[in-house]
């Protein structure tokens, strides 16, 4: 693809709410949009950026932003103009939701219209958008849409829409027998690295990216340390009845851990 005269864009020729190229998206801003920090590369027009928590935005935030733990990563762009969004030269795409829901890895979401509302998914590290409107998300390589039932590599998962039951799936072979126990405990021997997937069933769509390389997420959006909240509790075991909390206590070399349980010792 050799283009002799690269296309030059200006305020009027930039697309309105469409991709400029696969890596940059132009928002025709007329009002407000939510934007993840650092994803704006350039803009024409009169646009102000407000951190979330800015007084005059209270009503907007109350209706469309329900992720206090991500508040530090998001801003509101307010004004009129064309706004160019991009993310580390990854592919960006816009999606339209029509009274729907879509859950996406938090680091992959670039921006969304305030007619949608953003909530934290109960799956840690993911955000759910509910409502009607447009949002922009990035993926490392092109996005592919697949229909459940499907099992997806954890690193390749970008998000999903409508699927009611995202869950973990472990291959039985991997867990079986003494070798399985040794593998599970030490990570040594025979592991192909593909024994664990995310499984989706039911009606919906799953979004996968074409690489297993994740974007470096900002370490944000930890869920509250509360009983019954998956992945909660930065301090292991503190969550009361959550015996199987997200955090596993580190295993000492002498302990048999999983093996012990497996053989009923």
């Amino acid at each position: 693809m050799t283009t002799d005269a690269p296309q030059v864009f200006d305020f009027t020729t930039l697309p309105a709410n469409d991709n400029v190229n696969p890596y940059a998206f132009s928002v025709d801003l007329n009002g407000q949009w939510f934007l993840q920090k650092g994803k704006m590369i350039a803009y024409y027009g009169q646009i102000d950026f407000h951190g979330i928590g800015h007084g005059p935005l209270d009503r907007l935030v109350a209706s469309s932003f329900h992720s206090p733990l991500h508040a530090a990563d998001w801003v509101v762009a307010e004004g009129h103009g064309k706004l160019l969004l991009a993310d580390r030269a990854f592919d960006v795409n816009s999606y339209d939701l029509d009274d729907g829901n879509l859950t996406v890895r938090s680091g992959n979401l670039l921006a969304y219209e305030p007619s949608l509302s953003l909530k934290q998914s109960i799956i840690p590290g993911f955000l759910t958008l509910i409502g009607t409107g447009k949002f922009v998300a990035a993926s490392n390589g092109e996005v592919h849409f697949v229909e459940p039932p499907v099992r997806v590599d954890p690193q390749a998962l970008v998000g999903w829409a409508d699927c009611p039951s995202p869950c973990h799936h472990y291959d039985h072979q991997y867990l079986k027998g003494v070798m399985g126990g040794i593998r599970a405990m030490t990570g040594l021997g025979g592991a192909s690295g593909e024994e664990h997937q995310f499984e989706f069933v039911g009606a919906g769509t799953v979004l996968i990216q074409s690489t297993e390389m994740l974007m470096a997420d900002r370490n944000a959006g930890a869920v509250p340390d509360q009983a019954g909240v998956p992945g909660g509790g930065g301090h292991g075991g503190h969550g009361g009845q959550s015996g199987q909390g997200g955090q596993q206590t580190p295993q000492l070399p002498g302990q048999l851990g999983g093996l012990q349980r497996r053989f009923g010792l």
Partner: peptide, 22 residues
């Protein structure tokens, strides 16, 4: 450039703001 560069024209009355990192 990291990713294909986007060329943006600046003309009278249409100033452009650019993120320093981009």
């Amino acid at each position: 450039s990291a990713g294909p560069a986007v060329l943006l024209r600046v003309s009278q009355g249409a100033p452009l703001q650019v993120d320093p990192g981009a």
